[in-house]
Design a binder for these strands. Structure first.
Length: 182
DNA sequence: ACCCCGATCGTA
DNA sequence: ACGATCGGGGTT
């Protein structure tokens, strides 16, 4: 059923329209969807929303810079950056062009071998070997790097975001209830 | 040129 | 609880 083939997944690729919506909506709707990165596939288990210039934890709160430029662009692009000098974080841009926002992918459960749960944005990128060379790619068009619709719906839990020092009052982290994982 | 800090993680 | 490790961005 699931892996009828990668071609099948291409037919269910999430579109610009999917990402060009409220960041919170996109962050919630990404839960359970398949992330395809070359020969590795996993479904998304945890996300966070970073929304606009008024969100103090959003990189774009500092304004338009070389790094944040991609967040100001169209929805459906990858935003990959280096954190703490040693880990990469993967995001997908959301909302209308000109409005800087993105969803951080914090966890995926691989359905390809090894079927491990990559819980944590740094671990996830390290395992998949996602680095800055994959920044600013249109993931609604890329044949090797995209998100595909899953039929399954998961119940999710909402909490404040992790690892930030500002914006803790905003409940913008979402993750699939672990009890519902497989 | 210099300084501070960070959307993390493994070790302790 | 803490250190590793380095680029981004602001300041001198």
């Amino acid at each position: 059923m699931l892996l009828a083939g990668v071609k099948q997944l291409h037919n269910h690729k999430l579109t610009r329209e999917f990402f060009n919506r409220s960041t919170i909506q996109v962050a919630q709707d990404l839960l359970g969807q398949y992330l395809i990165f070359y020969d590795q596939i996993g479904y998304i288990t945890e996300t966070e929303a970073y929304i606009g210039a008024s969100d103090p934890a959003c990189h774009a709160a500092k304004g338009r810079t070389k790094r944040t430029e991609v967040m100001f662009g169209p929805a459906g692009y990858s935003y990959v950056y280096l954190i703490y000098g040693m880990y990469h974080c993967l995001n997908f841009t959301t909302e209308e062009e000109g409005f800087p926002a993105a969803v951080l992918i914090r966890g995926i459960k691989l359905v390809t071998e090894p079927k491990i749960h990559l819980n944590g944005p740094g671990k996830l990128c390290k395992f998949l070997a996602i680095n800055k060379s994959y920044n600013q790619l249109d993931i609604t068009k890329n044949p090797h790097f995209f998100v595909a619709q899953s039929e399954k719906k998961y119940q999710f839990i909402t909490t404040p975001r992790i690892g930030i020092k500002v914006g803790m009052e905003l409940p913008w982290r979402f993750y699939i209830d672990p009890q519902h994982l497989d």
